[in-house]
Computed example of a mutant assay.
Amino acid sequence: MKAMMIDVDGVIVAHPDPRGWSVNLERDLGLKVEVLQEKFFAPNFEDIVHGRAALRERLAPVLAEIAPHLTCDQLCDYWFRADSHLDHELLAELAEVRARGVELHLATVQEHERAAYLWETMGLKDRFDAMHYAAALGHAKPAPGFYAEIEARTGFAPQDLFFIDDKAANVEAARARGWKAAVWTTGRQRLADLLAEAGL
């Protein structure tokens, strides 16, 4: 193993409430999560997360319709801060792996703005060697192109990589390309155990 590819949401970032970052959205910002999902995420996020549209370009007109009291800045700031609960125990284990000379890369489905927030504002750039995300790659997991583009950008062969993700479909897609991969369940396992099971 020359590098580990690690998912973000559900792995590095794990909200303490299973309902996620929007659990208190209506209470805090006066916006029903169901309305935001129906009017913004469902019709727009596929384009945004694949880099075909900018987040604010799609969000601004929706907010003007469903929550004129909110700006894009207010909603994005709330979203990114509420969705920033790091798993420090896992990060400590990953730091030990990195200290042994294994590169750590993030492999995640993000749009450009949250990717920058994770990398810069949350400081993940200090803990990882690189970040590969859907809007920059033009592909999202579990599409084969997501994994192929990471291989092309890093120069790593599939057999050099070990990938962890909280979704079985994403893990299976990685294995189909020849990566070693395992499903991560927050709070139920240790990284060392997954590495041992994978023969690493």
Rank of each mutant, 00 (worst) to 15 (best):
V11T: 15
V11K: 15
V11D: 13
I12P: 07
I12N: 10
I12W: 03
I12A: 02
V13Q: 06
V13T: 10
A14K: 04
H15W: 04
H15T: 03
P16I: 07
P16K: 05
D17K: 09
D17V: 11
P18A: 11
P18H: 07
R19K: 12
G20W: 02
W21G: 10
W21V: 07
S22V: 08
S22W: 10
V23F: 06
N24R: 15
N24V: 04
L25Q: 06
E26K: 15
E26V: 09
R27D: 15
R27H: 02
D28V: 13
D28E: 12
L31P: 09
L31M: 08
L31Y: 01
L31C: 11
L31A: 09
K32E: 15
V33M: 04
V33E: 09
E34V: 14
E34D: 15
E34Q: 14
E34S: 15
V35N: 05
L36R: 04
Q37Y: 09
Q37W: 06
Q37S: 06
K39A: 13
F40V: 04
F40A: 01
F40H: 05
F40N: 03
F41I: 15
A42G: 03
P43I: 12
N44G: 00
F45T: 03
F45Q: 09
F45M: 15
F45E: 08
F45L: 09
D47H: 06
I48P: 00
I48A: 01
I48K: 00
V49W: 01
V49E: 14
V49K: 01
V49N: 08
H50R: 14
H50T: 15
G51P: 14
G51T: 04
